[in-house]
């Protein structure tokens, strides 16, 4: 399907999406918050699993944040080209990113400083935690645009 006729208007699937890339803003927010909570997470993992846990936690946080940045970058770049390319690159990018995460873990699995339980737990909790944290702000912004932090900051 190259062109779709919807509501009486033709929409080209090969047309680029104009405007700013919101996913980059979302990803930047999550990366900033991830960096803010990273010392706390590292301290908790260090307390539970020792020094190896702290290093593994830092490595896992880096994996999660790079994964977010990569995902948003893929969407932002391909949306400027065409919707079809965006869809294809999201699906292929999913496999590629899983492969990169596997590679990143596989390369350090026998390292002396790695603690796999700490790594796994941090990957899951950081990923889900940052998403839930961001979703709260996105949901508030969509329902009540006046509550957007940027809007409040611009009023001051």
């Amino acid at each position: 399907m190259n062109d779709a006729s919807l509501n009486g208007t033709a929409f080209s699937m090969s047309a680029p999406l104009a405007g700013p890339a919101p996913e980059v803003a979302v990803s930047n927010d999550m990366v900033k918050r991830g960096l803010v909570v990273a010392p706390l997470l590292i301290a908790v993992c260090g307390f539970i699993w020792g020094l190896d846990g702290a290093w593994s936690c830092a490595y896992a946080i880096a994996i999660v944040l790079i994964n977010f940045a990569l995902a948003s970058g893929i969407v932002a770049v391909t949306a400027r080209i065409s919707l079809t390319l965006m869809m294809a690159s999201i699906l292929i990018g999913y496999i590629l990113r899983l492969g990169l995460i596997f590679l990143a873990v596989y390369l350090v699995k026998d390292a002396s400083w790695i603690s796999l339980p700490a790594l796994g737990a941090t990957i899951i909790f950081t990923h889900l935690g940052l998403l839930v944290w961001e979703m709260k702000y996105v949901a508030m912004s969509l329902a009540y645009p006046g509550l957007k932090p940027s809007t409040q900051a611009s009023k001051k």
Binding site: I101, P117, I124, H127, V138
Partner: peptide, 24 residues
């Protein structure tokens, strides 16, 4: 696009949980 990105990331969390089970 904002909602789509969050949806993708939430869905991907399931794959990451499977990955963590795999590495453990």
């Amino acid at each position: 696009r904002t909602t789509m990105f969050l949806g993708i990331a939430f869905t991907e969390a399931l794959a990451l949980i499977g990955f963590v089970v795999f590495i453990l």
